[in-house]
């Protein structure tokens, strides 16, 4: 019962992060600021959702379920490494291509 509550909490908060990331992707004014929610919030959202799933399938506690949980956490580790790096690479490419960052007062791009 308590486990179900923890799982539900993780999933809901993870989905809130995902929703925030999507909203930011749609609403922010330019390229760089749009990548900011895409890189950060999606990473956190996937962490929480996968954590919830890992806890959910952990009971009854056997070797198989523990291994599955570890595999899910391994996905989180790689998402944490890869997603911010990919965002950084895209920002870097945009900066090298000479795209000016948006400043207050500029029109939305």
């Amino acid at each position: 019962m308590v486990i179900d509550l923890i799982v539900a909490f993780c999933l809901v908060v993870g989905l809130i992060f995902f929703a925030g990331g999507t909203l930011g992707l749609l609403r922010f004014p330019d390229f760089y600021s749009r990548l900011h929610p895409a890189g950060k919030l999606d990473t956190m959202g996937s962490f929480l959702v996968l954590l919830g799933l890992a806890i959910h399938q952990l009971f009854p506690l056997t070797l198989g379920t523990v291994l599955t949980g570890l595999k899910l956490m391994l996905i989180v580790v790689f998402v944490f490494l890869a997603s911010p790096t990919a965002t950084h690479a895209i920002v870097d490419a945009g900066f090298r291509a000479g795209l000016e960052p948006w400043r207050k007062g500029d029109p939305r791009r």
Binding site: F78, L81, A82, T85, H88, A89, D92, R96
Partner: peptide
């Protein structure tokens, strides 16, 4: 030729 980006280079090397 453009200089390699440190972060991208290292993360990819470990991944």
């Amino acid at each position: 030729w453009t200089p390699h980006d440190f972060i991208i280079e290292k993360v990819c090397r470990y991944l």
